[in-house]
Design a protein around this nucleic acid. Sequence first.
DNA 1: CATGAATGAGAATTCATTCAT
DNA 2: AATGAATGAATTCTCATTCAT
Lengths: 204, 204, 204, 204
Amino acid sequence: MKPKRKRRDGLLRQAQIMEIALKLFAEKGYHGTSIDDIIASANIVKGTFYLHFESKYHLLDTIIDSNLSLMFESIKLLDISMPKPIEEIKQFYIDTARMLMQNEKLRLFVKVFFRDALSLEQKLADKVNYFFQQITSIISAYIAKAQQDGRVKPHLDALVLSYSIIGSVKEVLYHWAVLEENLDIDSTITTLLDTYLSGMLQNA
Amino acid sequence: MKPKRKRRDGLLRQAQIMEIALKLFAEKGYHGTSIDDIIASANIVKGTFYLHFESKYHLLDTIIDSNLSLMFESIKLLDISMPKPIEEIKQFYIDTARMLMQNEKLRLFVKVFFRDALSLEQKLADKVNYFFQQITSIISAYIAKAQQDGRVKPHLDALVLSYSIIGSVKEVLYHWAVLEENLDIDSTITTLLDTYLSGMLQNA
Amino acid sequence: MKPKRKRRDGLLRQAQIMEIALKLFAEKGYHGTSIDDIIASANIVKGTFYLHFESKYHLLDTIIDSNLSLMFESIKLLDISMPKPIEEIKQFYIDTARMLMQNEKLRLFVKVFFRDALSLEQKLADKVNYFFQQITSIISAYIAKAQQDGRVKPHLDALVLSYSIIGSVKEVLYHWAVLEENLDIDSTITTLLDTYLSGMLQNA
Amino acid sequence: MKPKRKRRDGLLRQAQIMEIALKLFAEKGYHGTSIDDIIASANIVKGTFYLHFESKYHLLDTIIDSNLSLMFESIKLLDISMPKPIEEIKQFYIDTARMLMQNEKLRLFVKVFFRDALSLEQKLADKVNYFFQQITSIISAYIAKAQQDGRVKPHLDALVLSYSIIGSVKEVLYHWAVLEENLDIDSTITTLLDTYLSGMLQNA
DNA sequence: CATGAATGAGAATTCATTCAT
DNA sequence: AATGAATGAATTCTCATTCAT
């Protein structure tokens, strides 16, 4: 039996494994996906997998790391203190959301994220929590500044508000990525923006 | 050596196992907790466990079922259409929240819920999703009715609004149950209520 | 397929596994013997093995622990300071050696011991070294005392002498247990005893 | 990216690999050292290793072969039938021992030798055993001849005596190479020589 | 000579579940 | 009701060796 050696650049193979694993994790969950499943899908053998990733856990870790920055940038866009006309902001949100929601890999990642990121080792949960903590810091800093500028109602708790905003976005993402609902981006963003803006702003 | 047989009422034993399992699931996650861990904590042997629960999965299923109704009732309280003065509603929310947050078992359950409920078998995820779908239906029905009554802004998407509200509450619960933050109940509820009410209501 | 369950007392099964493993370790070495080999010989399945031993390493550890005390007692017999006529001592040595050399399990253990005990984890090597250190202490203390009593030549280094004696015995054991030579117990013990006695003793 | 090709003389590279492997084997044992460890230390890649050695086993085999002759010569020095004044012999032993004990590579080899030589494949064990068998033959021939010449007590078993001497030396080497004890060469050799000489010699 | 991606046969270990007692 | 020894399929991970480039 001649072994077929499909040689290719190491990074390509690594990316290929990550993509296939992401698909499987999204479909059957992290625990429900075995290394055997992954290598069968990727058409490689055990050793090749462990050549590129030191463990199943590190594979997920790498996937999460490589996707988290994109999510980070995306969520940062929710800058409510942006000094622009509301209609312009709204359009910007809508355009960004449309762009992101066409990214199938992102959808899979969000799905895996919601399903498995918290149920694994503490280290991973810590990483995820740190990520959201950063987002929270940014948003609550925006709000606090807007409160000092007299634009946002002063009696609202900036931290709770940022939890609320983040929770709202998470929930919408969950319906999009996990439940695969067809959300109307326009009305979703309009509703969220209008509610939060007129709920938070001083003169609204 | 005569084996020691600790006979006791079957339901008692069952409740005891559930309580211990909940504690362990909250601590180490469902996948991170083995039957061996549970029976060691409960001071029983393998056979006894399977006398009371047909599988590890059914144990969690039972735990979830028995806690979901309480959560259901609690979340239903977010009835924004409640025909009462806002201050009264707010006080009611605060009182309810205080009561619930003293329930340590509930905190553990919420923790397990957030960590594991979605990463398990489809059957369980379906149950959880159905639960939230019900909550969503109730809330969006409230909102739709309030829109018909002219109390809530008509251009807002009732479904998106209910996602947002549920997401906000989930997020707060997550910070309470999983991250074990000390939340100020007063300012939390005040902020959420004020924001949503003045964000949604016609004349606000 | 009805699984055949060969129920028996847990300790019996444990002893059975240890005996079979010792045989295999002696035959093929620790690294050369897989868990599969052991369970096939013992006619049990994987799970049963791990029910009784937490790992392959712990199995060897248990085997070593349970045999070391016998070896300890045996080697202690080399008490050169024994206040008895030489002929009597010699006969005692011969009788003891005969007895031990009929113990087939001991032979297997000595074989495993020489082959594998030092090539494994540090922990095990430490244990073995500690064992010999104890023997060394005992023997060199005997010698030092005999030197104070003027029976052993004072210029000899008691520690080196104990190394020498232990090394001699180890070597003979190696030829017996590993190389499976047929040693003449009488002439072996006579030669060693006579050489060491007339080599060490003052008036010899 | 052009791969960097560090060409050098084949034998040099081979010697370099052997030296690094010896160090690693001494430190972590043969089984505890992987090819990956070796090539990482040697700063080469897999293919290069197999260019120089056909297998991990052959690497050790080569290391053993290249060191065994030195050990062979060294141990042959224990020629008790040497027709010289004892003091001269003793001084010769001491000088030789001093010289050998300064050879760090030899110490590493002896360590590997004691730890792993016996726990490996039969082929290697056979080689080691053959080596000692040769030493044994030489020593017991010396003794037998000295017995015929009337210099060594005739009732001692020449074979057992040679086992004893070899065992003594092995044990001392073990304490030096593996346990890294600081042995006093003078008193070690004096004690061994005096004991064996006055133990074996007719008129002593 | 040199590279390093790929191989794949093993090996160890886990753990939910069963069932004879 | 209770026991706890036994099961065995599933899973992760290792590592010496090969070979196309």
